[in-house]
Design a protein around this nucleic acid. Structure first.
Lengths: 186, 186
DNA sequence: ACAATCATGTAAGGGGTTACATGATTTG
DNA sequence: CAAATCATGTAACCCCTTACATGATTGT
């Protein structure tokens, strides 16, 4: 990821923006954010505790969020909220026209790209890719009912994720058929 | 990217594997590899000079490749080749069944996910995503004639890339239509 | 002569993951 | 009472990008 990725107008890191958005969504704690990310944005934007907790502190220092202690019994717990500045920063980002970052790293495709070095493994590589995406499809379908009643944004990204994944699988199936029908095409 | 990403059997980093593959493809220098990556694997696996040159040295130290000086006139130039160990490592990786890494970071989708926070920007966000992918489609189409005569692997990844990108664009067009027809769906 | 291309590299810094550590509370 | 869940955090490490620096050669 580019280091100059901090948004020029909001001065937050990419994951910082995820946190701002999640707080706008009514998420409360670092734990809460992490759970929700894992069941929603994970397929196009992941986040780990090691990123979330330090970032929450940075955002508070920057005055974009405020946290207050709200222990559940004896269990410590910090509940965060957007400040006015934080909401402004979120809106600025959402309205910005700087080209949005897009980054893909797909080792399956890399193997396929080099498959002429070891052609007898090509079909197996494609099968592996297909299975991976079939699993992903199942995971996306699992969160579908939960998203169906919510706001349009999450519904749309889920729909898009399903479409792309299905497209991927369809291509694999077709390619597997082509290789099976004509094993000599090398 | 996971730190434990170094392949258990080949002991190379992801980009190290790209380099091994590129050398098997007959690429010669760091510069040559970089040029080719930019016109082939870039859409699913990028690499920068800051990664390539140090990695070439590491791979040579590991005995997977050998370099010899082959200056063009007074211009220094190091030409690399796979060793037998290097080719073995490449084959081991291509034949490995460990689940291939897949990582996506799409800021456009992230904006769409949070678009209920600023619904009046939603259509614009989708338009932005579409334009980005239309540009990518053009770039992929530009390398198509160049790949058409080559080996199957690169042809397949290009085809897959085109398919996915087209799928993305189609979804955007459809979503834009839906929003235009019914601006109240929010 | 100038620009584009060939060619190699380094330093600083960003963003991220994993693994580990700790402990309270709820549920079966 | 044990297991799962809620909850917070840190340290080590990795991978990668950008920006910078340098210089020769080729094409116009």
């Amino acid at each position: 990821m580019p280091p100059q990725d901090r948004h020029p107008e909001t001065e937050t890191s990419p994951t910082g923006r995820v946190i701002l958005g999640m707080l706008a969504f009514g998420k409360t704690t670092g734990y809460d954010i992490k759970q929700f990310v894992d069941s929603s944005t994970r397929h196009f934007w992941a986040a780990s505790y090691g990123q979330i907790y330090p970032e929450l502190k940075r955002l508070e220092e920057a005055g974009l969020i405020t946290g207050r202690e709200e222990p559940t019994g004896g269990r410590p717990r910090t509940v965060y909220e957007l400040t006015d500045d934080g909401r402004r920063a979120l809106h600025t980002w959402l309205a910005s026209t700087t080209p949005p970052l897009y980054e893909l790293r797909d080792e399956g495709m890399l193997k396929l790209f080099f498959s002429d070095t070891l052609p007898e493994r090509r079909a197996e590589n494609i099968r592996q890719m297909r299975e991976r995406h079939e699993l992903k499809l199942q995971q996306l379908k699992a969160i579908q009912p939960h998203a169906a009643t919510g706001p349009l944004g999450p519904r749309m990204t889920l729909e898009l994720g399903l479409g792309i994944t299905q497209c991927f699988i369809d291509w694999c199936v077709q390619a597997e058929r082509r290789l099976a029908n004509d094993p000599e095409i090398n």
